[in-house]
Design a protein around this nucleic acid. Structure first.
Length: 527
DNA sequence: TTAGGGTTAG
């Protein structure tokens, strides 16, 4: 109100035409959240300076009016006003919030042309934009470029970069950033430390994540959640529960994110009663309203444990429309337990919600096959073949030195592919001596048995494993990332391979880790 | 007279 009174006084004495005063007024209104008042002052200005434009664009960007900020920026260009690093960083923030990829890419080029890309504000906004839009590789390229040019790194650029490494599960890159932290001391920042825990957990190094967790005295809720989510991702349910208790002893109370981690740990381990206990605790003890993700966890908990009807009841009674992910979880459970009736219910919903997801058709045909409904299997396969729907191809990747090696199922292009196949054949022979038999039961391609076995043998994670065995030192764990869920055959194969080679093998599939050691998997064969 | 930012989610 003081500002408004002051504005009235300025108008009274006739100072409103002064550019400097108007700029200050725009700024004052924007800081008070009165962006409309700021805009009125801006619109009435007979002439505007660069600062007027910058202040107005920045105000709009910060007050959630991103589209208007972009429109004004275009207007500024049309008027021929040269922009500065202030303009570029504000407009970049607006683009990142809007996820306007095209504008952002144009703006990046614009920033380079206007020689503003070396400005720390501009660089930070660019990095943030890339990470927010999951363009992690671009983010890392930018970070390396900044490093080569000797530009300043700060806690903001570093936490975004670590987030990019986490998104790519790029451990070697992540380790390099960690080394920068050790030199600069930026690792003691709570945001940086939280993203570091997340990065190590997502790269399969849960022990490293815990070392970071243990080293910090300051602990925020996000920091606790990052560690608990990491343990959940690795199916270390006991550690999840211990930390859940410990945080409360230290007067830090769980929030919605904590409960998602706790419930997902229960689902990965088949802990139905514990899951129900936590779900009730969340509502009654901590007064939190479960969101669609919590319900999704509960459907998963019941479904994975074979309580398909309870899972379906949960869906029917929840206060939200079920998402594709929830119906997908039910359909997967139906496949595992051969429940045809509910598989058809789930599939019907999924075909509407995800018409382009071939996996749903395949799951349904698997349930038909498990129930020996061969006519329906054929119909379902025909439908899939006729539609435009394509199944996502299996892909695995592994980091060796500073390079990511990627393998598709039946890979032909890798430079060492001949040697890989030959070594893999040899490994299969050795494992067959330990009673390994290719499990083709769930692989329902209409192909003859020999060909089925060949397809299974060339699953991408087996190729990545073989390449890891060829290239990595004998004591190094082999970390493999995969874009789909690991199949039953590869799971058995990895267990035997860990025993035969004496190696630790870590496989991350769509949303969790499997640690294979001495012939066993951390998931206890429940996933 | 003008700038902001980063972390956790079945």
């Amino acid at each position: 109100m003081e500002g408004k009174a002051c504005h009235a006084q300025i108008i009274y004495v006739g100072l409103q035409t002064d550019v400097l005063t108007s700029n200050m007024l725009i700024n004052m209104y924007a800081k008070c959240g009165l962006v409309d008042c700021a805009r009125k002052v801006f619109d009435k200005m007979p002439e505007r300076s660069l600062v007027s434009w910058n202040t107005m664009i920045g105000s709009l960007a910060q007050n959630g009016e991103e589209q208007e900020a972009l429109t004004l920026f275009i207007g500024m260009q049309r008027e021929g006003t040269t922009c500065s690093e202030f303009t570029v960083s504000s407009v970049l923030c607006a683009c990142a919030a809007k996820c306007a990829m095209f504008e952002c890419k144009q703006l990046h080029a614009f920033a380079i042309k206007a020689a503003t890309d070396l400005n720390v504000f501009v660089g930070t906004a660019l990095l943030r934009w890339y990470v927010q839009n999951e363009l992690y590789e671009e983010a890392l390229v930018l970070f390396h470029k900044a490093q080569m040019m000797g530009l300043e790194q700060n806690q903001f650029t570093i936490s975004s970069t670590i987030c990019a490494c986490a998104g790519l599960a790029a451990l070697i890159e992540g380790n390099q950033v960690h080394a920068v932290l050790r030199k600069t001391g930026l690792g003691s920042n709570i945001y940086v430390a939280s993203s570091l825990i997340d990065m190590y957990a997502k790269c399969g190094c849960i022990g490293e994540a815990y070392i970071v967790f243990h080293s910090m005295e300051e602990r925020s809720i996000v920091f606790w959640n990052a560690m608990i989510s990491g343990f959940a991702r690795h199916a270390h349910s006991l550690e999840v529960m211990i930390l859940f208790e410990k945080m409360q002893q230290m007067s830090m109370y769980p929030n919605e994110v904590t409960y998602i981690a706790v419930l997902s740990a229960c689902s990965h381990m088949g802990l139905v009663e514990k899951g129900q206990k936590y779900f009730n605790l969340m509502i009654k003890e901590h007064s939190l309203s479960p969101n669609v993700l919590h319900y999704s966890c509960m459907v998963d908990i019941f479904g994975r444990a074979g309580q398909i009807h309870e899972a379906y009841e949960m869906i029917k009674n929840m206060p939200f429309h079920a998402t594709a992910s929830i119906w997908g979880s039910l359909l997967s459970s139906c496949r595992v337990y051969g429940n045809l009736e509910l598989a058809e219910v789930a599939a019907k919903q999924l075909f509407v919600l995800e018409p382009n997801n071939a996996g749903n058709h395949i799951l349904l045909s698997n349930v038909y096959a498990a129930n020996k409904k061969w006519e329906e299997v054929a119909k379902s396969r025909k439908l899939l073949k006729e539609s435009e729907v394509k199944k996502e191809r299996g892909k695995s990747w592994i980091e060796i030195k500073d390079k990511v090696h990627s393998f598709m199922v039946g890979e032909r292009n890798h430079p060492k592919i001949a040697e890989i196949y030959s070594k893999l054949d040899h490994l299969v022979e050795e494992l067959e001596k330990l009673d390994y038999k290719a499990e083709t039961a769930h692989d329902l391609h209409y192909v003859e048995e020999g060909r089925k076995q060949e397809l299974l043998r060339h699953h991408s994670e087996k190729l990545a494993l073989t390449f890891g065995l060829m290239c990595l030192p004998s004591n190094a764990p082999i970390r493999i990332m995969k874009n789909l869920r690991i199949c039953g055959d590869c799971h058995s194969f990895m267990k035997l391979a860990s025993s035969f080679t004496g190696r630790e093998i870590i496989v991350r599939d769509t949303n969790r880790f499997h640690h294979f050691r001495n012939g066993c998997c951390s998931c206890g064969d429940f996933w």
